[in-house]
């Protein structure tokens, strides 16, 4: 499968425009999707609570300390966005916030780089 990693600059080049960032921040979509995460060589399974183009909130079994570098794969179910097979987004990011609520661990991460797979 072809990777399509894009930075903001690449994205702007791709559109052929040098548009300035808009005032609006990224919109968070309340979508629950399975997430496979690797942090400090350990693997975790998690579920997303909300996702935006710049960050993600998810819950898992363990509390991840802020500052942890993470890599994760968000699974997109078959047929939901036109692909008649499971699609996935591979992301590289960093935990910026974590907390426990009703004995469930939550973590928020910024997405520094992503690629569709």
């Amino acid at each position: 499968m072809d990777l399509a990693t894009r930075t903001v600059e690449e994205h702007e080049n791709e559109l052929g425009v040098g548009e300035k960032p808009r005032l609006r921040a990224s919109v968070r979509f309340p979508i629950a999707l399975p997430l496979h995460l690797v942090a400090s060589t350990k693997q975790y399974d998690a579920v997303t609570d909300n996702i935006s183009a710049s960050g993600i909130l998810f819950h898992l079994d363990e509390l991840l300390p802020p500052g942890t570098q993470v890599e994760f794969l968000i699974e997109i179910p078959e047929g939901t966005i036109g692909a008649y097979q499971t699609a996935a987004v591979h992301c590289v990011g960093r935990i910026v916030r974590s907390y426990v609520e009703s004995s469930t661990a939550f973590a928020a991460a910024v997405i520094e780089e992503y690629s569709f797979q």
């Binding site: 399509a4 894009r6 903001v8 994205h11 960032p21 808009r22 990224s26 919109v27 979509f29 309340p30 979508i31 999707l33 996702i51 935006s52 183009a53 997109i76 047929g79 939901t80 966005i81 036109g82 987004v89 997405i111 992503y114 569709f116």
Partner: peptide, 19 residues
Amino acid sequence: GVSDRLELALYCLHHQIHK
């Protein structure tokens, strides 16, 4: 009203555009 490919995919997923 989206600004990149990931936001576009999330929008379509959230609104079930293709379905």
